[in-house]
Simulated assay, not measured.
Amino acid sequence: MADSSTTTLPAAPAAAQTAAMPAWKRLYRRIERAIVPALVLIGWELFSRSGVLPPALLPAPSQVLVAWADWVIGTDGNTQTYSGHWIFDVAASAGRVFAGFALAAALGIGLGMAIGWSRTIEKLIEPLLQVLRPVPPVSWIPLAIIWFGIANKPAIFLVFLGSFFPVLLSTIHGVKTCDRNLLRAGAMAGGTPRLLLRHIVFPAALPSIFSGLRIAIGSAWMLTVTAEMVAVKSGVGYVLWDSYYFLRYDIVIAAMASIGLLGYCSDLLIKLLSARVLRWQRGSTLQSKEG
């Protein structure tokens, strides 16, 4: 009979462990993500009010917040023509981002699967892609304006270029690193190449694909802002550049903060989608840790 004194008790649930913590430690866990940003904002506020630089050149966070609030909901009209137009500027930029990003994701995943799976397609297409990949997307701006004019199309084109290669390369990597034993097992079970691609290769490549999508969405926001500074007359990037000409650096910083917030939210959406789609990966990871 096994000695009961040596019986291993199951680990306490995470919620129970958290409840057993001291109050100060629970509070710290809730606010630890905000500590460094809060310190940066406090230091920035103190430096701006110290008089080392003129307030117009480095607006304090409190001044930026006032301008941002008026831009969003039109509190007092201090941002003039921008007052209350934040949602329209964000909608214009977001539409360009997600149009270019969707095109890049569809083509990048499809072409990446083909290149990673077929040596023939890889030999035919990859040399051209490797020549185009080092060319900075911003260098396409003159051609984009000539081809598409001053409107949404050049911005969408630039977003597509900036998002396409991260998705493509991540997909190729995911396909090429698929476990060959799984492919052999699927082939032995009578799987055709199409079935192997659909039921083995594509699911195995999904973690890499989502990594590429997260990189691509950040590039998409950077490129749409760049395009709006040059080739478009609306959006957050246009507000940033236009307010610079009028020396409204509080609006410039508010626009930069808006871009960062929008990029963070976009990345969070992809992370949530990834967690939902890749539930099987999380379960296998937990099993490997327990083993």
Score class of each variant (00 low, 15 high):
residue 159 V to W: 01
residue 135 V to Y: 00
residue 249 Y to V: 13
residue 249 Y to H: 15
residue 25 K to I: 07
residue 218 G to A: 05
residue 91 A to T: 10
residue 65 L to Q: 06
residue 109 I to F: 02
residue 208 S to Q: 06
residue 279 R to W: 07
residue 52 V to K: 14
residue 21 M to A: 15
residue 125 I to H: 07
residue 244 Y to P: 07
residue 45 E to I: 07
residue 60 A to S: 07
residue 144 A to S: 12
residue 153 K to I: 05
residue 38 A to W: 07
residue 6 T to I: 01
residue 102 A to K: 06
residue 267 D to P: 00
residue 260 G to D: 04
residue 165 F to C: 13
residue 83 S to T: 10
residue 228 E to P: 06
residue 72 V to N: 02
residue 156 I to Y: 02
residue 90 V to P: 14
residue 98 F to E: 02
residue 108 G to K: 03
residue 1 M to E: 15
residue 246 F to C: 03
residue 40 V to T: 01
residue 41 L to V: 12
residue 152 N to S: 11
residue 194 R to K: 09
residue 197 L to H: 13
residue 224 T to Q: 08
residue 17 Q to H: 04
residue 24 W to K: 12
residue 213 L to C: 00
residue 176 K to I: 05
residue 163 S to M: 03
residue 215 I to Q: 06
residue 269 L to F: 14
residue 252 V to F: 04
residue 20 A to R: 10
residue 115 I to C: 08
residue 53 L to H: 05
residue 85 H to F: 08
residue 22 P to R: 04
residue 27 L to P: 12
residue 47 F to R: 11
residue 221 W to R: 06
residue 87 I to K: 09
residue 191 G to S: 10
residue 258 S to L: 00
residue 78 N to D: 05
residue 277 V to W: 10
residue 26 R to I: 00
residue 282 R to D: 10
residue 17 Q to W: 02
residue 119 R to Y: 03
residue 237 G to Y: 12
residue 291 G to Q: 08
residue 46 L to N: 10
residue 291 G to L: 07
residue 172 I to F: 00
residue 42 I to H: 01
residue 148 F to C: 09
residue 23 A to K: 13
residue 24 W to S: 14
residue 73 I to R: 14
residue 182 L to Y: 13
residue 208 S to H: 13
residue 128 L to Q: 02
residue 189 A to C: 10
residue 121 I to M: 10
residue 26 R to W: 01
residue 73 I to T: 14
residue 24 W to M: 04
residue 2 A to K: 13
residue 194 R to D: 08
residue 45 E to A: 10
residue 14 A to Q: 11
residue 137 P to T: 04
residue 8 T to Y: 12
residue 127 P to V: 04
residue 252 V to E: 09
residue 79 T to P: 03
residue 149 G to W: 05
residue 37 P to V: 09
residue 225 V to S: 09
residue 279 R to A: 10
residue 128 L to C: 05
residue 212 G to A: 06
residue 220 A to P: 12
residue 242 D to R: 15
residue 98 F to K: 07
residue 51 G to K: 04
residue 173 H to C: 03
residue 138 V to Y: 15
residue 77 G to K: 12
residue 286 L to S: 13
residue 136 P to V: 07
residue 251 I to W: 06
residue 167 V to P: 11
residue 181 N to Y: 05
residue 57 L to S: 14
residue 94 A to F: 15
residue 172 I to N: 00
residue 234 S to N: 15
residue 232 V to C: 11
residue 117 W to T: 11
residue 37 P to Q: 14
residue 143 L to W: 14
residue 151 A to K: 02
residue 168 L to R: 03
residue 152 N to I: 04
residue 101 F to L: 15
residue 155 A to M: 05
residue 74 G to S: 12
